[in-house]
Design a protein around this nucleic acid. Sequence first.
DNA 1: ACACGCCGTACCATTGAATGGAAGCCGGAC
DNA 2: GTCCGGCTTCCATTCAATGGTACGGCGTGT
Lengths: 256, 256
Amino acid sequence: MANSASGDSVVDRVVRVIEAFPEGADALPLSELAERSGLPLSTAHRLVRQLAGHGLLELGAGGNVRLGLRFWELVSRNSPALALRQAAMPFMEDIQQVLKQNVNLGVLEGWEVLFVERLSRRGSVANRARVAGRMPVHISSAGLALMAHQTPALQAEYLTQFHDPAGKVTAGVVRQMLAETRRQGFAELAGVVDPDTWGIAVPVLDGGRRAVAALGVVVPLAEVRLQALVPALQTAARGIGRQLADLSEFRSTESV
Amino acid sequence: MANSASGDSVVDRVVRVIEAFPEGADALPLSELAERSGLPLSTAHRLVRQLAGHGLLELGAGGNVRLGLRFWELVSRNSPALALRQAAMPFMEDIQQVLKQNVNLGVLEGWEVLFVERLSRRGSVANRARVAGRMPVHISSAGLALMAHQTPALQAEYLTQFHDPAGKVTAGVVRQMLAETRRQGFAELAGVVDPDTWGIAVPVLDGGRRAVAALGVVVPLAEVRLQALVPALQTAARGIGRQLADLSEFRSTESV
DNA sequence: ACACGCCGTACCATTGAATGGAAGCCGGAC
DNA sequence: GTCCGGCTTCCATTCAATGGTACGGCGTGT
């Protein structure tokens, strides 16, 4: 920009600032924010002040910066995420009541699962899925349930670019898992995320039988009762799908 | 800016675009977005494309624009709103279980209540509070509970600027309601939001006995059992307050 | 107590990125 | 086939964005 050759626009920089917040850290010093976003201190300072002027960021005591409630409000109130959540919540509560287990709801974002909602039963097993957190498709039951019910083209693309950093899983294995998931109508993953837990998820299908979300539970390995779990999940998932079709004409015009 | 005399920066415009989404509408045509944000079509178009390039907005079929999941993810994952919600959820579920009523959680934003979470019991009475929605302080029990436990200075400022557009309520009346709320330790509002419902809310206090949030229920007028409701709410509110103090050192560095 | 260093804030000449009117372009309606 | 509305692209003009530099305040180490 003016007087500089950074090669990115103001919008890019604003986005960079927002993205610079590391997951989980609610406040961080300006200098760190500048460094993390790769911006000169002056520039970061100016942008932060402008955003703070609109309430999107809040300036704490010692110049710490954090996201503002106003920002959350603006983005949440019209987000497809909230619409989906709204439609799913009652069903998720039912599941939680009946099965007494952790429930979560995820969507496909890029090549990962983005968890939109989670209900944790106190005293139940740990649930790695965090709200607004991500997980790789191939190591989450929700991910498998989602990917198994995408268009063949998208699945092919996914498998092509697939690469397990740990190097333990090959694209072929994932392909088989997806096929199995599709055949069964639900995804199961034992002891992968956590050694003592079992993840089970079913797809929430839209009119075209494409998965727009996945509904899953995390249960202790000891007490797996597939016969009871799966039908309940599937029923709930259908309910969610119907709700989406009815209420808000929820479309998932994904552009990977 | 360059070649123009609009008087606002790029950041201002980006914010204007985001704010232009009317509450509840998940997608709208570019032209309407441009008009609502008061920007020339060219400019709006450029900004939207840039934001969409980062996934913060998504471009639908006919050039419709909507907020992207990525945006929700970025803003939610580090928002104080999510931290608060996380701490409060188990207690809200308890309340919902025990009292079998709608539960909501709000914070003070500007001179209004911003609802951060809501659990609706199916078949229960209507609940006007929407997640990421707002309500005036003086016509919501959550608002009264929050304002009644702010610093005297802030309360005075609130009462000074207070003006009821409907012209029915005076600042004096609100002052009395706040005093009563403080005296009782909880706020009650009958038939104001909805003629057949009763709203009851208690403050979630921080170390300095300032309200950082309000926990409330909405019950049918017929079945009000204050003796049962209030203690339960207060217990839950204390639990939430403790959780906040423990976990995340939740501070509310409000700058009205 | 003093000096140093770190970090947030303020300043300001330079300059190229942002601007938006106008002209294409596409698709649907009549 | 033609028209219309809305999205998209183009491009000369120009002023807002930039960031190196300097200041001030606070905590730390000596």
